[in-house]
Amino acid sequence: MSVRKARMVLYRVSWIIFFVMVVISVLTRPPFPYWLTWVPAGVAVALALTAGRRGRAAAANPRAAVEVEPPVTGRWTALNSPADKVPSHGVHAYGQTYAIDVVADPAPGAGGGAAAAPDAVPGAGAGAGAAPGAAADGPDGAAGAGHEGAAGLARPKFRRLWPVALRNHHFPAFGAPLLAVADGTVVHASDGRRDHLSRNSLPALVYLMLIEASVRDVLGAGAIVGNHVVLDLGDGTYAMYAHLRRGSLKVRAGDTVRAGQPLAECGNSGNSTEPHVHFQLMDDPDLDVAVGIPFTWRGIGVPANGDAFTVAEGVHGSAGTRQGGAQAF
């Protein structure tokens, strides 16, 4: 086990010990002094502050951006883009320095974005936001019903109070095919986590930010990114797709894939506020130790926050179109 991996394990163990000690202090007369309860919390915070040092160093002297194909087709809008700030999700942890979120918005001017972007940043530097909430199995659970978000469905607006949450079929991204951005080998593929309800209202967002994101952070990278695929693109570069739809995998670990090949479908698993695509390049397949790598999408560049872009079906390797002021990163 590497030092970086051991640091992340100790970080999670420290928070678990803290929570256990708090519960003991509340329910019984603890056999330890009150101040001792905060020691593991202090250790966890210290570890969190040091965990991103390698990412910060890499961002200070970034390597050249790796050009790959877009992971989607159709019309999408960028959020949490590295074209606007680095680290794009506020943290370097889990290889997210140059990660990007995109939401399907096929009807120009329709829908309305959420007040917060689809990925929220939990306590120790994870990044990707949502909660388990009520089960979303059935129509929004395992894949098989096709791309519910097709036919120009508008993206729902963020609501202050009601509805608190929406089922995933209301979002045009849900079920959209995700494509290999380059030739490569599947290193990891998982799709067993359920797709939960959206978190696109103020009460749901508060629950996410104050409770669920922190719990997922302690549970580990898998709870943050949900169902995900990692591709080895060669030359020490790995591509990661997060929040995949339950049961939608088209590949498995060890498979060789070609650019443009379907991998899975867009979902709402893990730490996510709504169905969207979280994409990133990184230098290691293990999210606990990975450092982000800059990317650029062929024919598009790196769309800035709020910029829409369109990729036609079956034209991977050709230029896409972009609306707004997106810049190549």
Rank of each mutant, 00 (worst) to 15 (best):
G113K: 10
A114R: 01
G113R: 13
G138D: 08
A116R: 09
A143P: 01
A83D: 07
G133W: 10
A135T: 09
P132S: 14
G123N: 13
G144K: 02
D84R: 02
A136G: 15
W76M: 02
D119K: 05
A116T: 11
A99V: 05
D137Y: 04
A117R: 03
A130K: 08
G144V: 01
D84A: 03
L79T: 05
W76R: 09
G123I: 15
A104L: 05
S88F: 07
A135F: 04
V103E: 03
G123M: 15
A115K: 07
G109V: 05
K85F: 10
A126P: 01
A143D: 03
A114D: 13
G129S: 05
D119W: 11
A116P: 02
G90R: 15
G144N: 05
P106H: 00
P122Q: 06
V102P: 02
A130W: 13
A136C: 12
V102A: 06
A142W: 00
G129M: 10
G133M: 09
G149K: 00
V91E: 08
G74H: 00
A131T: 12
P106N: 03
V86M: 07
W76D: 10
S88D: 06
G95M: 04
G125Q: 09
V103L: 11
A145I: 11
S81I: 04
V121A: 13
K85T: 15
A114P: 08
V102K: 01
G74D: 00
A120S: 15
G109I: 09
